[in-house]
């Protein structure tokens, strides 16, 4: 069965569907609107970049999409399900298994080694100790941190912490990867490696949303959504490349086995748990 495409099948449930989402903060009795009636739709398997000036509401949107925050008003449907209707435990399971989040501030456990930080989501997923460790080591290797397994966050550079955070986000092979400025602390060489990693995942059918300030990074996505003052100001496809989204998705399986060398992506391709987005509600 081939994966559905946006253009081909109008009945298909979008993965992310925000409608008139408002997020207000109360500061000293005054209401500050961080998101002002944001509506956006992202289909399964898309690779989207969110850009916009500082303070425009990018992170706020990402937190909402990642089920870390709830809208003040408006609705957010994830794979057709209104997130407001989910219980705390259902949300925890969703964050654990279906969503990988790379935080702008990394958010690593401070007194815990890189390895343990990456093992964390798998621990809550009930993965056995042995497999946990093996997968965490592999994920850290994929982001180039094989030699920093036992370091704690305060013993790592900013870029290294960011990479630990990326490894943690990917280690449960989430169907939806949300990365808030994932390359903000990285040099151009490391940035390139991380972007290749994301592209591998995209080819395998994972849905990816990244926030970035770097035009260079944004261009690598297939679609760019621009935020200004808590609103969506523009939404455009990037220049078509030889391998359009639909094409790449169709061959993703053979592709990844043949030409995506790195162990990390091979793992994503071969493990049955890898969720290639199905068109049904359950499990994206």
């Amino acid at each position: 069965m081939t994966a559905p495409t946006r253009e081909g099948d109008q009945d298909v449930q979008p993965l992310i569907e925000m409608h008139d989402v408002v997020r207000e903060y109360e500061i000293g009795g005054e209401r500050v609107r961080a998101l002002n009636r944001v509506s956006l739709t992202i289909q399964h398997g898309e690779y989207v970049a969110i850009m916009g000036p500082s303070g425009s509401g990018k992170s706020t949107t990402m937190n909402m999409v990642g089920c870390l925050d709830v809208p003040t008003s408006g609705t957010y449907r994830l794979d057709g399900i209104d997130v407001a209707s989910l219980s705390d435990n259902e949300l925890a399971a969703l964050r654990n298994l279906k969503i990988g989040f790379v935080f702008q501030q990394f958010n690593l456990l401070s007194r815990t080694t890189a390895l343990q930080n990456v093992e964390l989501p798998m621990m809550y997923a009930g993965v056995s100790r042995k497999e946990r460790r093996a997968r965490a080591e592999e994920a850290l290797a994929r982001v180039g941190l094989s030699n920093r397994l036992q370091n704690r966050p305060n013993e790592l550079s900013g870029g290294q912490q960011q990479r630990v955070s990326i490894a943690r986000a990917l280690v449960n092979r989430p169907a939806l990867l949300l990365a808030d400025e994932p390359t903000g602390a990285l040099d151009s060489h490391t940035t390139e490696e991380i972007l290749e990693l994301f592209e591998d995942l995209h080819r395998q059918g994972h849905t990816i949303v990244i926030v970035t300030h770097e035009a260079e990074v944004g261009r690598r996505a297939k679609r760019i959504i621009r935020f200004v003052d808590g609103q969506v100001a523009a939404d455009s496809q990037t220049d078509s490349r030889p391998d359009s989204r639909a094409d790449s998705r169709a061959d993703s399986r053979t592709d990844s086995e043949s030409d995506s060398g790195p162990a990390f992506s091979a793992r994503f391709a071969t493990t049955p748990a890898t969720p290639l987005p199905p068109p049904v509600r359950e499990g994206f």
Partner: peptide, 17 residues
């Protein structure tokens, strides 16, 4: 410190219980 720790744990999928 603990509140942030709990936030992190919950963000990566820990149940409240």
């Amino acid at each position: 410190e603990r509140t942030r720790e709990i936030g992190i744990r919950k963000a990566v999928g820990a149940r409240r219980s």
